[in-house]
Amino acid sequence: MSDRTYNVLFLCTGNSARSIIAEAVLNRVGQGRFKAYSAGSQPKGEVHPYTLQLLKTLNHDTSFARSKNWEEFAAPGAPQMDFVFTVCDNAANEACPVWPGQPMTAHWGVPDPAAAEGTEAEKHFAFDDAYRMLNNRLSIFTSLPMTSLDKLALQIRLDEIGRSSQKAE
């Protein structure tokens, strides 16, 4: 088993909900094998209050949470990424910065909970649902045998995770 820590960047447009949730989840379920980061192409400048409320309710540390531009991770001295995942359709279709080290990439689209409409309960459910989807995908991701999969097999698995069911089961 490798003692290597893998750096993972989650990208979204606003970096206020989905990518922040993914960062929190992976830093917990990755158990030190993964170090997660998040950023946005057009960061909102603040984390959505429902994101913070959900993470705190689920006993996640939120001291890391800030909305930041993805250019921060393409700059000299930034951590070199092993994986870069887009979690929203807008970011997947945008021109991304060139990532040093050619990390593996995949698109794991999740509906934007910040765009949810309806009652407060329905809006909170959208955040809960985004958390569930990301938690499921990241649980699968962290269980992959990283050291025994070749790059092509690993890419296929990453793409499969992104296509996994988005609906509650």
Rank of each mutant, 00 (worst) to 15 (best):
R4T: 06
T5G: 01
Y6Q: 03
N7M: 00
V8Y: 05
V8K: 01
V8M: 01
L11V: 04
L11K: 01
C12Q: 03
G14K: 00
G14V: 06
A17P: 06
A17C: 08
A17W: 02
R18F: 03
R18Q: 00
S19T: 02
I21V: 03
I21C: 00
A22F: 01
E23C: 04
L26Y: 01
L26V: 02
R28H: 06
R28W: 03
V29Y: 01
G32W: 07
A36V: 09
S38A: 07
A39K: 03
S41Q: 02
S41H: 08
P43D: 06
P43I: 10
K44R: 07
E46V: 05
P49Q: 03
P49T: 00
T51I: 03
L52A: 10
L55W: 02
L58F: 14
L58D: 13
L58T: 05
N59V: 00
N59D: 14
H60Q: 06
D61L: 02
T62R: 09
T62A: 09
S63Q: 11
F64W: 09
F64K: 04
F64Y: 07
A65Q: 03
K68F: 07
P76W: 08
G77S: 08
G77H: 10
G77D: 07
Q80E: 15
D82V: 10
D82K: 00
F83R: 11
F83Q: 11
V84H: 05
V84P: 08
V84F: 11
F85P: 03
F85R: 04
V87R: 10
V87I: 15
A91D: 07
A92L: 07
E94D: 15
A95K: 13
A95G: 11
C96W: 12
P97D: 03
P97I: 07
W99S: 07
W99K: 00
W99L: 12
P100W: 14
P103N: 03
P103A: 11
T105Y: 11
W108L: 12
G109Q: 10
P111Q: 09
P111R: 05
P113N: 14
P113A: 10
A115S: 05
A115P: 11
A116F: 10
E120R: 14
E120L: 15
E120Y: 14
A121R: 09
A126C: 11
D128R: 06
A130F: 04
A130W: 13
R132D: 14
L134P: 12
L134W: 13
L138A: 06
L138K: 02
I140T: 13
F141R: 05
T142N: 04
S143K: 13
P145F: 14
M146R: 12
M146N: 06
L149K: 08
D150L: 09
D150Q: 13
K151R: 14
A153L: 11
D159Q: 13
D159V: 13
S165T: 09
S165G: 14
K167I: 10
E169N: 12
